[in-house]
Design a protein around this nucleic acid. Structure first.
Lengths: 323, 323
DNA sequence: TAAAATATTGTAAGCGTTTCCATTATGCGG
DNA sequence: CCGCATAATGGAAACGCTTACAATATTTTA
């Protein structure tokens, strides 16, 4: 591996000058700088991360800590991970993956935590490192999240503006913040339009949603807002079994928009999580904390992605592929 | 952070002795060793990774390099990643994520590559680092893979042993090694049992599989072996539309068994990829290469996981959850 | 019991980089 | 043309650890 010393020897300067060309180029005279830069290019120098880490007591490593059980890991983390990895690479950081609570974090500058629960707060605080969570765990830990309420509000409002009168909300029966927030968004739209309210809460799986349809007396001119794509998929199956045509008779909108809505033959209209922006915001939060400043929490705006489960009339042209 | 020097001062020995207690404890007298170990425990020492890296010119970082386009990233990488991260952590390594071909790998000891193609071989070779791929790219690069042929052979044989006569194979029309290998496994079983052969090749998406059913004249006493779960899902939808009962009239077996078969209301019988063993084998390969020895390629045995798309009569009790 | 062998501990240098300070070169006012 | 400020460069030490060797203590051997 080529080192600072190699460059210095080749350019007939001290390694200090080379270091300066890289870190404080304005302190080096133009001609020397150009010479050194030429040598750096020709020898293909990249600084040794370990040596950097040693002097700066920074490791340039961010850990993505997954606190969920492996069986329930959300598959769309893969996509989030890639966005994170790309952005961090641009910043000279590398992204490490951690799982479970026995992680060794001495060599890590900060953590992005997913799948955490309230009970994890003390653990996260004792790490003594900058931490940001995807999804709020409460005010104690900085977080980034999609604006859950806004998402269901947007979905419900869109359906109401289409002239649909009965909007059924099928939420998840979980004591988690996001479950409540998504319900609140629906209720907000319902209140604004003064239309009848139909709330059902089930577990987050297809089967329960599928079975719910059977017990429902679906009124004409109706639509479903589901708290997750998973629930929406179950609803679609149930509707199909009951010979109820989607979207001609009933519309369905899901939430999350990652992967699930792409594998079905009939693409689901859904509230898309802005994963790229979420990745960016998570990183921003850590960088701000590394500067020693307090990080602001962020709620990012989701967008409606139109598939085949709502009628074609769209308020504005939103591209099908994620931006 | 506590350092070797801190321990040395506290234990009234030189830091060399402390270093030896950690790396070559047999060279230290028992009483001194115990004293030092006690101090290490009480101060909570963990070696500085950067300093280690600097002296040993090892970085204790493995990169998981995803060469696919982000839109097509297989969601089950998330699970593989967790298995890898856990095992590597046990070995004192950390797992880093890379995407695209401009990765900086100077700080990396080895790479696990997924989603690569034949054309990536030169690129991987110029990295000058130990590399192992998940799925073969050819003999030039060490690889680990599920035994694709064995998987379809097992699925087909199982169905034939149930007394089913017509096994339809629905493969993927791709010039990739795995597509061929899966076909070969089916043909092997067909040849052995001397039953009629029905091969169809389509693109790897649900819609094509769905449409295929319509054009098929399905004979009685039949079953489908699909090259992927995605195709199997399409077949199931198509069969449902045609009022063909699964598994009473027709059985269906998929391949991959990651996630997809869990979200459907009707769990798919599928050939499960042994992800945990794959993770272990990938790591083993890199470690062997880091020792300077040639790595052997590995083909790991998949196992049939029974869902609701085959009749209940099972040859032996295989647990539904992945082991 | 003294020399030699071995076991135990310590010292110095170096890994590749940066920060801090010292030195040398250049430009300016008087 | 001299002294001073400023710009440009270099030297030394430090980050935390290991390897290589040196020094000391203990045991073995004859």
């Amino acid at each position: 591996m080529t080192t600072l010393t190699d460059i210095a020897r080749e350019a007939h300067v001290s390694k200090m000058t080379v270091s300066r060309v890289i870190n404080h180029p304005e302190q080096v005279s133009a001609d020397v700088r150009e010479l050194v830069e030429k040598v750096i290019d020709s020898l293909g120098y990249t600084p040794n991360r370990a040596a950097l880490a040693l002097t700066q007591s920074r490791h340039y490593v961010i850990q993505f800590l997954i606190l969920e059980d492996i069986e329930t890991v959300e598959p769309y983390y893969a996509k989030l991970l890639i966005y994170l990895a790309e952005e961090l690479q641009r910043l000279g950081y590398s992204l490490e993956i951690g799982h479970n609570r026995q992680v060794e974090v001495n060599h890590v500058d900060g953590l992005i935590v997913v799948g955490g629960r309230q009970t994890d707060i003390p653990f996260l605080q004792t790490l003594g490192k900058p931490v940001v969570t995807y999804g709020s765990l409460g005010p104690a830990i900085p977080f980034v999240d999609v604006d859950n309420s806004l998402g269901t509000y947007m979905a419900t409002t869109y359906l109401l503006e289409q002239g649909i009168e009965n909007i059924y909300y099928v939420g998840v029966k979980l004591p988690e913040y996001f479950a409540l927030a998504r319900l609140v968004g629906y209720l907000g739209a319902i209140n604004k339009f003064q239309t009848p309210r139909h709330v059902h809460q089930i577990l987050n799986n297809e089967k329960q949603a599928f079975q719910l349809i059977r017990h429902l007396d679906i009124k004409p001119n109706s639509a479903f807002v589901a708290a997750t794509d998973r629930i929406a998929m179950g609803l679609l199956n149930g509707l199909a079994l009951n010979k109820i045509k989607v979207p001609e008779t009933v519309s369905v909108i899901g939430f999350d928009g990652i992967f699930l809505n792409q594998i079905t033959s009939q693409r689901l209209t859904t509230v898309q999580q802005p994963l790229k922006e979420i990745a960016q915001a998570l990183i921003d939060s850590l960088l701000v904390q590394l500067e020693g400043q307090p990080a602001e929490n962020r709620l990012l705006r989701p967008h409606l992605v139109f598939g085949g489960t709502t009628s074609d009339h769209q308020p504005n042209l939103v591209p099908l592929v994620e931006t």
